[in-house]
Nucleic acid binder design. Structure first.
Lengths: 255, 255
DNA sequence: AAATCATTGTGTAAAATTTACGCATTGAAT
DNA sequence: ATTCAATGCGTAAATTTTACACAATGATTT
């Protein structure tokens, strides 16, 4: 089964290139990302895949995101291309080949997967509860990991996550963030916690609110979040149009 | 000759990937970049090349920069990977194939070069006068073009330049710039003109000087530029150590 | 030789932004 | 009924950014 799949895919896709996606979610006050456990191993990796011969790299990334999460219409950001000759950074060659053989059931196929491949890295921000985490044909398990508990991953995927985070942190300084990452309605403290988590920094809630409101992308609703401890906070929602305008024109998050 | 070279190279390099470099220089108050004219055609492109099978993408970019300019020890920045299925954006398929045939002397090789290739884009900043502009084995001419006079280029290279410029403009906001782009000693107005050219914006020279001096990367020399019209300006030089520290820690160019 | 003039060197006040911080209110939990 | 942690709202201080003027220089012109 796995062998058949691999053979078919190898024929239809580019041989020297692949895609890897860092899919960020936000839950329980922590930044999380989706990881996959390779069949019959304890080896984890980022969601990734190959590029069909008649498919653009961007399309491949979008397709992979859809396959792993069920989500479409999510914007993906290409952040770096990983072109080292040996991208097996953490394990020994023997360890990695052993894992690959366990997954693919033959050393022939393991070698094919092990050979030099350049990978284009994309990251995406998705709404945690909307994700239907779905494994690959070569993975047993697909689940969220908190950013602080990520284990040593296959290939150079730990470095990929580092770089994706750097790119995200760079991005948050000039683009609004939260749409697709938070539920439709959210409170100001929730939005603040998202920013604080990504930048690993605390903000004064009064100044944070002032700055975010100055972007003119938030709509304050009549409703409040009920049933929560203490004073019930107002709910907010992004104004789609204004949010997109702010993406175009850029903002300056300078806290 | 060209055919032999192509055959040899095709064997030793990755088949589906290439590198393209946007090499920026600064001269006569204008931002310039190196372009190559393909043999026996009027078609211009960015300097580029293939990646050897045992060579990292970064190394290939460094090597290409060295081959075209004679310069080493220049930092290259990967800014985007171009993965569309059809990267011939400006000419018709017929026009492009015609040019490639003129260069390679056979439709067989033209087709090989025409097929789908994903390209990793790098940009570099170099000192204009230090560059020994050297053509490829498949190009007749290598020379500087002012940014405002760039013609329609082969493949998607106009888009590449746009993206490289965007990346450079992004970069200048958080990293110091000028080392490797200006001669060793330069005046404050010269440095300012560089910033103004890249960002296409004018600054107040007093505020500019104050901000740049606040980075603590410049050494003011005793000397002045002589023989120049009007009041002779002081010369400055980057303090290599402090410059690199500022690259690490980042600066905030907020004018 | 004197006058001209474009360019450079230098400092300060006003405006805008960012930061710091206090008190009243709410509503679940005690 | 009281407590208490979290929220809503506003203002003063500090810092940063912006705006701006006049003296000095030295090649060029008269």
């Amino acid at each position: 089964m796995v062998e058949h799949h691999l053979k078919t895919i190898l024929e239809k896709t580019l041989q020297e290139l692949s895609i890897d996606c860092v899919i960020f979610g936000f839950h329980a006050g922590e930044l999380k990302m989706l990881l996959l456990r390779w069949k019959a191993t304890d080896g984890w990796s980022l969601p990734g895949g190959r590029i069909y011969k008649d498919e653009s790299a961007d399309h491949a990334a979008t397709r992979i995101l859809l396959e792993r999460t069920g989500l479409s219409e999510i914007s993906l950001h290409q952040f770096h291309t990983f072109g080292d000759t040996n991208r097996n950074k953490y394990f020994t060659e023997e360890q990695l080949l052993h894992k690959l053989e366990a997954t693919f059931g033959s050393s022939f196929f393991a070698e094919l997967v092990y050979k030099r491949i350049v990978s284009i890295g994309y990251f995406a921000l998705v709404e945690f509860d909307q994700v239907q985490a779905t494994p690959d044909w070569y993975t047993d398990e697909c689940r969220w990991w908190g950013i602080s508990e990520i284990p040593p991953l296959l290939f150079d995927h730990n470095e990929m996550i580092e770089r994706a985070l750097t790119a995200l942190r760079q991005r948050i300084r000039t683009q609004p963030l939260g749409y697709n990452l938070l539920p439709e309605k959210f409170t100001m403290p929730e939005l603040q916690r998202l920013y604080e988590t990504i930048l690993d920094k605390q903000f004064d809630r009064r100044n944070f609110q002032k700055l975010l409101m100055s972007y003119d992308i938030l709509e304050k609703l009549e409703e409040k979040r009920v049933g929560v401890a203490n004073k019930s906070p107002f709910l907010y929602r992004f104004d789609r149009q204004k949010y997109e305008a702010a993406m175009e024109n850029g903002v300056s998050f300078s806290m």
